[in-house]
Design a protein around this nucleic acid. Structure first.
Lengths: 182, 182
DNA sequence: TTAAACGTTAAATATATTTTTAACAAACTT
DNA sequence: AAGTTTGTTAAAAATATATTTAACGTTTAA
């Protein structure tokens, strides 16, 4: 291999490294460790990788790769691939960011809606008790009502968030916001 | 105050604590510390608070409240309020979750789009260099093209994310997904 | 103009998270 | 059946983050 081809190869590696760096840096958003972020970004330019290839490429320990890959699988950013004849497990990065977006945010928002809606329902039951209780002073009733209304109002948001999740999962959102807009 | 009104008061506190717990627990999503999460959830049921009220209520140090409140202000989850005659600064929680949602996610997604788009543009420039370089072997050209196309394809996602941000900021998204959908 | 109140910054401490090394268990090979 | 290879779990070390205590500067009040 001569000098010029060497230069071209270097350009390609530079190009990849720029994108790898940017992806890894913004992946704190997805709540993964730096090791997992670097791993995903690296895998983004590979067809598939084994644990040993990962640790060679990233110069990290095997357990670190093992736990990172598991976390990425939970987020549906990495999938196990079947490779006949190989004892080693192989994994591939999800390269369609729309799918990663859907899996990650829908899961996260569903957790938020569920937890908060459940708490709100229970809280509202308590507040109704206080409102109905004949021993409650007018001040107490007024306060309970105020909080009840505040919570009732906040449900609008959680229902909306749930509808957003629904339209992402069903794909309807892409009718409103096309993937290939101008 | 008699026993019965005491019971009603307790019900109200229980109700608030349930919601405070749920909000604080899901706020890891927004990348704030536990102290800031608890603070926001507490402020959600208050009109406004001073730093001293915060530290009394949460039983934490004043600097902790100071840094927490600043972080929440950055996320536009807390706003400074003017209280005439008081030397102490007062702060109020943003109680409209739609506004918090918009501020937080739009800011985050804009950062992601900007960083990755910039990296992609630079990378594609490098890849074009490698493709055009007469010294590149056919294999190198093919590889550079493959990555170029992969990056070009990923731009579709970032443009879409940008359009999502735009429709949230402009409010257009609520025409497609109404806030008060049954 | 001195003293107190208020908020922030800096250094130190405490706590939690991430990563590694070491030990283990299962599956395969010979 | 003994020895490897592969992946995971557990304990330890390293690192990073969160929180507190102490010190500081500014503003206000006496």
């Amino acid at each position: 291999m001569n000098e010029s081809t060497e230069a071209s190869r270097a350009k390609i590696e530079d190009a990849k490294d720029k994108v790898i760096g940017a992806i890894a840096e913004t992946m704190d958003i997805y709540g993964v460790t730096p090791a997992a972020a670097n791993l995903y970004a690296t895998m983004y330019f590979k067809d598939q990788m084994t644990l040993d290839e990962m640790r060679t490429e990233l110069e990290m320990s095997k357990p670190s790769m093992s736990t990172s890959v598991r976390k990425l699988q939970e987020n549906e950013m990495v999938k196990k691939t079947f490779t006949r004849g190989s004892r080693k497990h192989t994994y591939a990065a999800e390269k369609n960011f729309f799918r990663s977006f859907m899996a990650f945010y829908c899961h996260m928002w569903e957790r938020e809606v569920k937890m908060n809606m459940e708490a709100i329902e229970e809280a509202q039951t308590d507040l109704i008790d206080a409102i109905k209780d004949s021993a409650s002073t007018p001040e107490i009733v007024a306060e309970a009502k105020k909080y009840y209304d505040q919570l009732e109002d906040s449900k609008t948001y959680y229902r909306w968030l749930d509808s957003l999740v629904g339209s992402i999962r069903s794909g309807e959102i892409f009718e409103f916001l096309p993937k290939d807009a101008k």
